[in-house]
Structures are given as structure tokens and as C-alpha cells.
């Protein structure tokens, strides 16, 4: 800078050579600020909606069942444990095991008595991954009136097969509870116990000494569907 040129605040900031690059730099700044600001504002609105509103989702279930059956003849006072390997169950893609229903049916057909035998059934708690302590599970039953015994084991947490409305920030979070793996793995153990009953306790020729018991196991599988309630 020549000595006769007075130094001013302006000349400290801009010279003839620096004018164009400075203007370009500031213009680039302005353009970038505008472009990114539009992006930011768009995201701000989306985020604001996301954090301030929790939409409601309609939850429905598609249900399929898989049935297994075992027919066993038990002697009087016999206890027998039946095994149903859940690995044999074919679970369709996207489905999970929701619950297992067991029906125990006895047939009174031998002997001359018309007195029903006493049958007891239990689901034995083991390593099968399920809600063993759920109030919706019914693990024991007994009958001496020739009626079927119904037992139930809830496998998937909170699954009852009924549609519901839930609040969640996004579809993933709404579905998250219903996307768990690992429930229903293992072997279902059903314990049967038979006590033959004779009229007035008399069976002189010893004809009524056993009972044929049918165990039906129905595995309920579900697939959760979610849709935004407008």
C-alpha cells in the first residue's frame, strides 16, 4: 500500500483485487445458508410433529393354527407324560406363536359301568419359552364327568388375538412389541393322570381298567398388522 493512501476501516477489509473473491465467498455463504435453512426448516416441522404428537395405530392380527394330536391308552392309576416338540410346528413367514391350547378328551367305552373315569391333565413348566405365570395361562385341569379338559398356555406376551388401538411415534415403534423372536421354542409336556371309576366302586370281573385319552394341541400363530388411524 502506498504511503499516501489513507488507511480506513474499509480499506482494511476490501481492496480492488479482493472485492470479487470476497463477494463470491459471501455469495456462496448466502446460497449455502439459504439451501440448508430450507432443509433445516423442513426437518424442524417433521421433528416437531414427531416429538409433539403421538399418532394412534390400529393393531389387528391375522391368525393361523397348527394342530397336533396324540391318542393314548392309560391304565388305572397311571401317570404319563406326552411330549409335543414345537420344532415340528411350521410357522409361516412373518408369523409368531401366540398361544397353545390343549384339549384332553376321554372316552368311556369299556366296562359295564356308566360312571365316568377321573382324568387329570397338567402342562408341565419347562424350558419352553412362554408366559408360564400369565393369568391367561391355564396349566391344570381335572374332570370326572366325561367332559373335555381345556388347558391353555400363553406364549407371546400380551397376545390375546383381539384388535387394539395403540399410541406410538412411528410404525416401527408401534410394531416393535410384536416383532420379538424366540417365543414358543421348546417341547410342550402334557402330563396325564387316570383314575378309573366303577359304579359304587364295584367291578367284579375287572373289565374297566383303562381309558383311551385323546390330546389335541392347537398352536395359535399370528401376524400383527398395523395401520395409521387417520
Amino acid at each position: 500500500m502506498s504511503s499516501d493512501e489513507a488507511i480506513t476501516s474499509r480499506s482494511l477489509l476490501v481492496t480492488r483485487e479482493s472485492r470479487v473473491p470476497t463477494a463470491v465467498a459471501l455469495l456462496v455463504t448466502l446460497v449455502m445458508m439459504t439451501v440448508t435453512m430450507v432443509d433445516f426448516v423442513g426437518d424442524l416441522q417433521a421433528t416437531d410433529t414427531f416429538t409433539s404428537e403421538t399418532p394412534e395405530w390400529a393393531l389387528t392380527f391375522e391368525v393361523q393354527t397348527y394342530t397336533m394330536q396324540a391318542v393314548e391308552t392309560l391304565q388305572d392309576d397311571e401317570t404319563r407324560i406326552l411330549e409335543f416338540d414345537m420344532a415340528e410346528v411350521t410357522v409361516p413367514e412373518g408369523y409368531a406363536v401366540g398361544s397353545i391350547n390343549v384339549t384332553i378328551t376321554s372316552e368311556e367305552e369299556e366296562g359295564i359301568s356308566v360312571q365316568c373315569d377321573s382324568v387329570a391333565g397338567d402342562l408341565i413348566e419347562n424350558g419352553l419359552t412362554a408366559q408360564w405365570n400369565s393369568p391367561m395361562s391355564s396349566l391344570s385341569g381335572q374332570d370326572s364327568s366325561c367332559q373335555p379338559i381345556d388347558l391353555a398356555l400363553q406364549v407371546y406376551p400380551d397376545f390375546d388375538g383381539r384388535s387394539a388401538t395403540i399410541s406410538a411415534s412411528n410404525e416401527y415403534q408401534a410394531m416393535q412389541h410384536w416383532l420379538q423372536d424366540g417365543w414358543g421354542d421348546g417341547v410342550l409336556l402334557v402330563e396325564l393322570d387316570l383314575d378309573v371309576n366303577s359304579p359304587l366302586g364295584i367291578d367284579p370281573i375287572g373289565q374297566d381298567t383303562d381309558e383311551e385319552i385323546t390330546v389335541d394341541v392347537t398352536v395359535v400363530m399370528f401376524k400383527a398388522n398395523i395401520s395409521l388411524i387417520a
Partner: peptide, 18 residues
């Protein structure tokens, strides 16, 4: 402040090289 610093940087680097 940014405008001041950017302007000053460009102004002095161009003058230095020139």
C-alpha cells in the same frame, strides 16, 4: 464478525501475493 474476518483474510492474502 464472519464478514469482517473473511473479508480481511481475502484482502490480506491477495495483497501479500500481489
Amino acid at each position: 464478525g464472519y464478514v469482517v474476518l473473511i473479508s480481511m483474510y481475502i484482502r490480506f492474502i491477495t495483497t501479500e501475493v500481489r
